[in-house]
């Protein structure tokens, strides 16, 4: 018997994405071409990588609002160290430690300090941005020094004609998928997200696991930062003031990783990102005005959320404490 609830949000998103894809392929010349589709995936790679990191944290029933600040400041810190004459490997190692430290502090504040993740990471995001802008950077843009521009120019790297960003995105997805589905730590993440108390009662090391999750999201944010810096050869911290963080949460939740935790996976992030990617790509080709683009984006999202409510009606069984 096919129950109604099998038509999950993930499937709604896939259906809407496929619908848009077919529609655009017929209506827009140049949309359905290998190069445009590769460009489309390239364009969602940064969003997608952040989404995968955010997804892991949300599955564990947390949220990381410091990701975009970490993205910006880790890359800027790395560039500023190069500018200060610190060798490449040293700069890389220090930046990596910096990123992991932020992630670990986030995790410790949440797991051991029992501060709600939304507040801990919001404060951490503001702190990282504020510290970076005032103590590390002299202006809001950090430029890769001339002697490293050839070495660090990721933008022109295109093995087999596919931009390097796409490979990195795929690699991040595979690593995250492996972590979530094939390791015990991944399973622990689901248990913790599903029922924190029960997970602790059966002996899962819940606190170290939470620290691990935030270290991973910080790391993924730094990878996204490396892509931004490596393709534009500079990093403008204005990205922190953009809507990127909301877009990340959007694709994760849209894709079907509920904010209440314990469900979903990497595929959900990919589908959420693809929907946004197809939509934005199509609207850019159509050359729509900015306000119209925002309106259509909002409408499509509302449709997805409404369809989800129709197909997956909430009742006492599916409702869970902590739903936002």
């Amino acid at each position: 018997m096919i129950s109604k609830t099998e038509f999950t949000q993930e499937k709604v998103v896939v259906a809407v994405s496929v619908g848009l894809f077919i529609l655009f392929s017929f209506l827009l010349s140049g949309f359905f071409s290998a190069s445009n589709l590769i460009g489309l995936i390239r364009n969602i790679s940064i969003l997608g990588i952040l989404g995968v990191g955010m997804g892991i944290v949300i599955i564990g029933r947390g949220i990381d609002l410091s990701m975009v600040s970490i993205l910006a400041i880790s890359a800027a810190f790395f560039i500023e160290m190069l500018n200060a004459g610190i060798p490449l490997t040293g700069s890389f190692f220090i930046a990596l430690c910096f990123v992991l430290l932020i992630g670990i502090v986030n995790g410790v504040l949440i797991a051991y300090g029992e501060i709600p993740p939304i507040f801990a990471t919001l404060a951490m995001g503001l702190f990282v941005y504020g510290y970076g802008r005032s103590q590390i950077m002299s202006a809001d843009v950090a430029y890769v020094p001339d002697e490293y521009t050839d070495l660090l120019d990721l933008g022109t790297l295109k093995p087999l004609g596919v931009p390097i960003e796409v490979y990195i995105f795929v690699a991040v997805c595979i690593v995250a998928w492996f972590f979530l589905r094939k390791t015990k730590y991944g399973h622990y993440t689901y248990y913790i997200g599903d029922n924190y108390e029960a997970a602790r009662n059966v002996g899962i090391p819940v606190r170290p696991m939470i620290v691990l999750q935030y270290a991973l999201s910080a790391l993924f944010a730094a990878i996204a930062g490396a892509i931004v810096a490596g393709t534009i050869l500079s990093l403008n911290t204005r990205i922190v003031n953009s809507t990127l963080l909301y877009d990340v949460i959007l694709i994760v939740v849209l894709g079907g990783i509920g904010l209440s935790g314990g469900k979903g996976g990497v595929s959900n992030v990919i589908f959420g990102a693809l929907l946004i990617g197809i939509l934005v790509n199509g609207m850019t080709i159509m050359d729509l005005e900015q306000t119209h683009q925002n309106l259509i984006k909002a409408l499509i999202l509302l449709v997805v959320v409404i369809l989800d409510t129709i197909f997956n009606q909430r009742n006492e069984q599916t409702e869970k404490q902590g739903d936002i």
């Binding site: 140049g30 071409s33 190069s35 445009n36 460009g39 489309l40 390239r42 364009n43 940064i46 931004v228 393709t231 534009i232 500079s234 403008n236 204005r238 990205i239 953009s242 990127l244 934005v280 790509n281 850019t284 080709i285």
Partner: peptide, 15 residues
């Protein structure tokens, strides 16, 4: 936003 500019230009050059 420079990142957004890069994304829309990628699509524009494709088209």
């Amino acid at each position: 936003d420079a990142t957004k500019a890069q994304e829309v230009t990628t699509t524009m050059l494709q088209q």
